[in-house]
């Protein structure tokens, strides 16, 4: 017994050090495998609040640029609306369209990025929307130019988004001009370039083709732009991937939309019944 006490006396610093290191290792593993590190993340009250303040201050420096982006988006929306109007006008049979009866598939919630990261192998973004704004886990985050990521950790006022620049991101994507699907991943090298793998061999594509999200997941709506092909390997096999340049500059993001799929539960239930 005395020997034991003596041992503790002698190595008390080392044992304490070891104890704290074990906590640190537990946190690392927790962060790597489960994404449920609720407490030590940028969504909690203190860290989220501080980032919100700092972002409120720094957003004044990019107001002009943000305005240009908004004008661009307005322009594309107006053009789309005009096309839709002309389509409705050209319908010969006069059917009254009751817009209340049309149920939308998705609703959008606007928000702002208060903390961005793009230089690590696993990047996360923090946004200023949380449970109080009906945000939950696994919702798509996009902006006017393209996709950004998927929410993975939500607190009352903030949410953490797993960026597409994350080694664990797997997003279903397809070519704009045909219906061949692939999986979008990131190899961790350049933050403007992501990779598309698992492309079927019969798919035809060339440099410059546009990639959009496929409608196969319940998270992303179909047809959100992603980027254009910039490099195609000489011989395409199952392990090869094509490089895609993102439309978004991931180092310079501001306002975002969170997409809520209103039929998510229904689709999930259907899938479960089939199994």
């Amino acid at each position: 017994m005395q020997q034991l006490i003596y041992f503790f006396q002698k190595y008390k610093f080392f044992l304490f050090f070891l104890f704290l290191e074990i906590i640190a290792v537990a946190l690392i593993i927790n962060n790597h495998s489960f994404h449920k590190s609720k407490f030590i993340s940028s969504t909690n009250f203190i860290t989220g609040g501080l980032y919100q303040k700092s972002s409120n201050l720094s957003e004044y420096f990019s107001l002009k640029e943000k305005n240009l982006v908004l004008v661009e988006e307005n322009l594309s929306l107006k053009n789309k609306l005009e096309r839709l109007n002309s389509y409705f006008d050209s319908i010969s049979s006069h059917q009254v369209i009751d817009t209340i009866k049309l149920n939308p598939d998705y609703t959008y919630t606007s928000g702002k990025i208060i903390k961005n990261s793009y230089s690590k192998t696993d990047n996360f973004i923090t946004i200023n929307r949380g449970k109080n704004d009906d945000i939950s886990k696994e919702m798509a985050v996009i902006n006017s130019k393209g996709i950004i990521g998927i929410t993975d950790n939500v607190s009352n006022n903030f949410a953490r988004v797993q960026s597409i620049l994350n080694s664990k991101s797997n997003i279903n994507a397809k070519f704009k001009n045909n219906h061949h699907y692939g999986t979008l991943i990131w190899n961790g090298e350049n933050y403007n370039i992501v990779q598309l793998t698992d492309i079927p061999r019969q798919a035809v594509f060339k440099v410059g083709d546009t990639i959009i999200t496929g409608g196969r997941s319940t998270i992303f709506p179909e047809g959100i732009p992603i980027g254009t092909i910039i490099k195609v390997p000489e011989e395409l096999s199952a392990v090869n991937s094509i490089d895609i340049k993102l439309f978004n500059d991931m180092s310079n993001l501001g306002y975002i939309y969170v997409v809520t799929n209103l039929h998510k539960e229904e689709i999930k239930n259907l899938d479960n019944n089939n199994e």
Binding site: F13, F14, F17, L20, E21, I23, A24, V25, A26, L27, I28, I29, N30, N31, H32, S37, F39, I40, S41, S42, N44, I46, T47, L50, Y51, S117, K120, F124, T126, R160
Partner: peptide
């Protein structure tokens, strides 16, 4: 907590502190 990195900084900082 601020940089969403689990316990990486904690581990390294503790090590040099020891």
């Amino acid at each position: 907590a601020f940089s969403n990195s689990g316990g990486i900084h904690t581990f390294a900082t503790l090590f040099i502190a020891y």
